[in-house]
Design a protein around this nucleic acid. Structure first.
Lengths: 116, 116
DNA sequence: CAGTATCCTCTATGATACTG
DNA sequence: CAGTATCATAGAGGATACTG
């Protein structure tokens, strides 16, 4: 089907904020965690221990909804895996993280020049 | 000075969400608008007419705070201009936008497979 | 022109407790 | 293990009116 191509400026459609704002705080992190291999819910939660099960679930549901990950239930065990769409986002996403790692100090300095 | 390098995973520091979530909805768009040349407040608002002056102001204050733009008041006229830090973010940022333009349809399809 | 000031609502997210 | 259910709060963001 034909969805109208998002023109980020003219129409100010939601794509202007996607996936810059990935609809969930932990979504981008989950995506990166799944880069290496599929992970179980508990494995994800172990790393993202600062969030609740509820929020992690919501992050995963969001990622599922958008076609970034697929949920595979094998009996008791449930694991999450990247789709090709999800994997394709890792490039740009990691580019942003790389930028952040490189310029984080400058942002902090801009926020608080005193702390030198 | 030495700010500890952000390890996006180990400490789950705020950098994990920056600038993926740029602390303001309109911030990334403002950044892109300033790519070509400095713009006045009203020029920005003309394009971003869907938001209020209050929110646009807040976006600009956020961008200033983080060292992405500088505010230059020339008498009555006020214009905003990218700093080199702000400009350096355009690369990764535009990469994400490019990804979005290319995969937006797939996300919509994932959200609503019916609409074919 | 370039904002401020208010009011208001809705959502995101956390904390905590419970379940098949 | 892999979630749900509930409660509670801060802040995001819209609408609108006002100002030097």
């Amino acid at each position: 089907m034909i969805h109208s191509k998002p023109d980020v400026f003219d129409e100010l459609c939601p794509s202007a904020f996607l996936p810059i704002r990935m609809d969930h705080k932990w979504a981008p992190l989950v995506l990166r965690l799944l880069e290496a291999r599929p992970l179980r819910f508990s494995e994800l939660h172990a790393v993202l221990h600062r969030t609740s099960a509820k929020e992690l679930t919501r992050a995963l549901r969001t990622l599922e909804r958008d076609g970034f990950v697929v949920r595979a239930a094998a009996g008791r065990a449930v694991s999450y895996e990247l789709t090709s769409l999800g994997r394709s986002l890792l490039g740009p996403l990691n580019a942003v993280y790389a930028w952040t790692a490189e310029h984080w100090d400058e942002i902090l300095d801009a926020r608080d020049p005193a702390e030198t």
